[in-house]
């Protein structure tokens, strides 16, 4: 049991990250923390891809190097996904700055009260 789990440690870590990220997105009252939760969630998915691409004793995918080669595709995919994630974070933080300017709060509950009163 423990050995089977230990062999899949990266996958366990990635799903823990996904779970933690989802929980933070739902439970955190602070908008910035929600964005942090979103980042943790995405990191879990990135780790899932990278872990799936691991090859025991793998070498870079060059013609001159020995087999077995490592497939570069998952890494490239995740590089793209990281860029997308950075862009999302930037847009989200931009919106949060504007919300703070307008309402003077980042707390979800306070925000709801302020908005219902005006």
């Amino acid at each position: 049991m423990m050995e089977a789990l230990a062999a899949k440690d990266y996958y366990i870590a990635s799903f823990l990250l996904i779970g933690i990220g989802t929980y933070v997105m739902i439970a955190a009252g602070n908008l910035v923390k929600k964005v942090i939760g979103m980042n943790i969630f995405q990191t879990g998915i990135f780790l899932f891809f990278i872990a799936s691409a691991y090859v025991e004793g793998g070498t870079p995918p060059l013609l001159t190097s020995e087999t077995p080669h490592v497939s570069p595709v998952p890494h490239v995919l995740i590089l793209t996904a990281i860029v997308v994630g950075v862009a999302l974070t930037a847009v989200a933080l931009g919106m949060i700055v504007r919300i703070y300017d307008d309402y003077g709060t980042l707390d979800e509950r306070t925000l709801k009260e302020v908005r219902s009163s005006d």
Binding site: I18, T22, M38, I45, L88, M95, I99, R115
Partner: peptide
Amino acid sequence: SRSTVAALKYLLVGTFGASLFLLGIG
């Protein structure tokens, strides 16, 4: 600023959906 709050909510939920899509692709 009502639109900004709506947009942030859209962003968080939408990103969650797109990320699930990405995990499915994985």
